[in-house]
Amino acid sequence: MRASDRLSIGELARRTGLAVSAIRYYEAEGLLTAERNAGGQRRFLRSDIRRLSFILIAQQFGFTLEKIREQLQSLPLERTPTKADWTKISRSFRNELDTRIESLTRLRDNLDGCIGCGCLSLRKCALYNPQDSARVHGSGPRYLMGDDPPKTTG
Rank of each mutant, 00 (worst) to 15 (best):
P149K: 15
L7P: 01
E66A: 13
G154R: 13
L111A: 05
P81R: 05
K67R: 04
K151G: 00
F44T: 06
R24D: 05
Y143L: 06
D112A: 14
R91G: 02
D148A: 12
R24S: 05
W86P: 07
S8H: 04
D148I: 00
I57M: 09
R24F: 02
P81M: 08
I9E: 03
P81L: 09
A126V: 08
K67W: 01
F93G: 05
A134H: 12
I23A: 07
G116E: 15
G118C: 04
F44S: 01
D5G: 01
T105N: 13
Q60C: 09
R108L: 10
A19P: 05
S74N: 03
P149S: 11
L120Q: 13
F61Y: 02
E70C: 08
L32I: 05
R15S: 11
A19G: 11
G62M: 05
I23F: 09
R51C: 07
D147A: 02
I68Q: 02
T152M: 10
A134I: 04
R79I: 11
G40E: 00
V136G: 12
G118P: 06
P130E: 04
R42Y: 07
S92N: 03
Y143P: 02
Y128N: 08
S121L: 13
L75P: 06
R100Q: 13
K88I: 08
T33A: 12
E29G: 01
R15C: 10
T99Q: 14
R106G: 09
R123D: 00
A3W: 11
Y143E: 10
G10S: 14
Y26E: 10
P150Y: 08
D5S: 12
L52K: 03
G138Q: 05
Q71I: 12
Q71G: 13
G140C: 11
D48A: 02
Q71E: 15
R43Q: 15
D48I: 02
L77I: 07
W86T: 13
R69W: 03
R123G: 00
L32F: 00
E70S: 14
R123T: 00
L52A: 08
P130T: 10
I68D: 00
R94W: 07
L77V: 03
I101R: 10
G10C: 04
I9F: 04
L12H: 03
R51H: 11
T87R: 10
N95W: 03
F54E: 02
D132L: 11
Q60D: 14
R24C: 07
F54D: 06
Q73P: 04
R123L: 04
R14Q: 14
K124H: 09
R108P: 01
S103H: 12
C114M: 11
L45F: 08
R123N: 03
I23P: 06
A3G: 05
D132A: 15
A22Q: 14
E35A: 15
G17C: 08
Y26W: 11
I23N: 06
C119R: 14
E102L: 15
G118D: 02
T80Y: 09
G10D: 14
L72S: 12
A22C: 11
P141D: 02
S92M: 03
E35M: 15
A126H: 13
D48F: 01
S90F: 03
L12V: 05
R142T: 06
R51E: 10
H137G: 00
I57F: 04
A19I: 04
L72P: 11
Q60R: 12
N110Q: 15
A126W: 12
R6Q: 07
C125K: 15
I68A: 01
E102Y: 12
G10E: 15
K88D: 05
D48P: 01
